[in-house]
Amino acid sequence: MNIFRLTGDLSHLAAIIILLLKIWKTRSCAGISGKSQILFALVFTTRYLDLLTSFISFYNTIMKLIYIGCAYATVYLIYMKFKATYDGNHDSFRLEFLVVPVGGLACLVNHDFSFLEILWTFSIYLESVAILPQLFMISKTGEAETITTHYLFFLGLYRALYLFNWIWRFYFEGFFDMIAIVAGVVQTILYCDFFYLYVTKVLKGKKLSLPA
């Protein structure tokens, strides 16, 4: 464990909690892409099956359970409890355009053609594009609630911090995982446009609105 991975995990946890609280407190999931949340639930489910097979540490186990629990709670709030506030018309990204190519790639490019490894690889690739429906929805509505931009900021920051974690681990432990690194770079690049808008607008107290 190093400071980048710890702050990265805490940033990820903050994002997940911010989103859950936003929906619960405002009793509304307006502006939130349910499809992205489904993808995140799928990412955690396929990545954390090793909860059933190996114990790494209490921290590892507890964080995985929190991530999976919050992901499914968020999907439940969006599609069941506050379904009336779900903006399905603007959440129109075709999930099959992500899941199918990612599934194919995971079968072609992986470290080991075993069940758990293929699922882990699938989850790594899927996570790198899972935010696309959310970013697509914001580009369609042309705006985002400020609390939603904070959610996206911490979510994007977490994988950026993981990039530093991988530099750290390569330098100090000689450890690196090319699949996770490449997917992590792609994932972070997808946020660059949002990061620019977040720093230049939201941090200056303005509302995040895209030129329609």
Binding site: R5, D9, H12, D50, S54, I56, S57, N60, M63, K64, Y67, W120, Y162, N165, F175, D177, A180
Partner: peptide, 10 residues
Amino acid sequence: ETLKKDKDEL
């Protein structure tokens, strides 16, 4: 050991 090591990230 390496397997456990390289899957210790969330």
